Simulated scan of single mutants.
Amino acid sequence: MARQMISRLEQTAELDAVSDRLQGVVQRVVKSRRLQDLLHGTWLGHPLHPALVQLPVGAFVSAAVLDALPGQHKPATTLIAVGMAGAAPAIAAGYVDWSALSRHQRRVGLVHAAANTVALGLYAGSLAARLSGRRGLGKLLGYAGLSAAGAGAYLGGHLSFEQGAQMNHGSSEVLRLPEDWAEIGEVAALPEGKPTVRTIGDVRVLLYRLGDDVTAMVERCGHQGGPLGEGEVTGTGGEACVVCPWHGSTFRLRDGYVMHGPASGDQSTLRTRIRDGMLSVATP
């Protein structure tokens, strides 16, 4: 039943009107590239949103446990207040990540956000009831909020692990490459200071040559799988970067280091070896 509901949700085009408008709002509000990188977790090398949700989730679950015990009203109330405060940065990071997803992913993400909004509303009501002395109502609303948050978490898990949102799409490409050294061709045939694409089996690899040094990275962008080989190159020499043509993730060509999001991790790179003027690559 749950799988069928999720499948229908992914195909519900009626959500696109709301999703597209909300995406535009998020992108207009969060214009700063520095703020975007902060919320994506680019500086951390890991998506920030999953880390931030640990505080509100932990606080809400702990409050539910304390509510089941006698004489724990005050600490449970404190935990709900802490959880609501901790939800704010998690929401901000989540919306920025969501705004850079594909349309079918954003459909699920929209309902995920709606479920969590309902949960926060219930927790706000729970906190108000507790502070006014209506403990029974406060507990009831708290458990209802936890149920709504659980539904939101289920959708968030589907979004991440089934639809691949904020996962490194380049890492799976590495697994498809041979473990032994695979010969690419003559180093002299590679243009100096300009990325080029070669194929090993059916995996596209982006090569960048600086003198006698060659960097090899997976050509499929780790964010959403965009073709880096078609991206714009900015900068020169060791600071040259390639910009993904799909969502603008920017990676330094000499080592795959992520400079700007929405990608939050470095681009997957390969080992390189040059013998007798011939370049070979191998998995890390």
Rank of each mutant, 00 (worst) to 15 (best):
M5L: 15
I6G: 13
S7H: 11
Q11N: 14
E14S: 15
D16A: 03
V18L: 15
S19A: 14
R21F: 12
V26I: 12
K31G: 06
R33D: 11
L35R: 06
L39T: 05
H40P: 05
H40S: 03
G41H: 11
W43S: 15
L48C: 07
L52C: 01
G58V: 09
G58H: 07
A59D: 08
V61W: 00
H73T: 15
K74E: 14
P75H: 02
A76Y: 03
A76G: 08
L79I: 04
G83F: 01
M84H: 04
G86H: 02
A87N: 01
A88I: 15
I91D: 06
Y95A: 09
Y95Q: 06
D97G: 11
W98H: 07
A100Y: 09
H112F: 05
A114R: 05
L120K: 11
Y123R: 05
A124C: 10
A124M: 13
G125E: 08
Y143C: 07
G145F: 03
G145N: 11
G145R: 09
S147M: 13
G150P: 06
G156F: 03
F161V: 12
M167P: 04
G170W: 12
S172C: 10
V174P: 08
R176M: 12
E179F: 12
I184V: 10
G185P: 09
G185W: 09
E186D: 13
V187I: 05
A189H: 10
E192P: 03
T196R: 02
V203D: 11
V205N: 08
L206G: 07
R209S: 00
G211E: 01
D213S: 09
V214K: 00
R220L: 03
Q224N: 14
G226D: 00
G231V: 13
V233M: 03
G237D: 08
E239R: 13
V242F: 00
G248A: 08
S249L: 06
T250K: 11
T250F: 08
R252Y: 00
L253F: 05
D255N: 15
D255I: 12
G256D: 07
H260G: 02
H260R: 13
G261V: 00
S264G: 10
G265K: 15
Q267C: 02
R273D: 13
R275P: 06
G277R: 03
V281C: 01
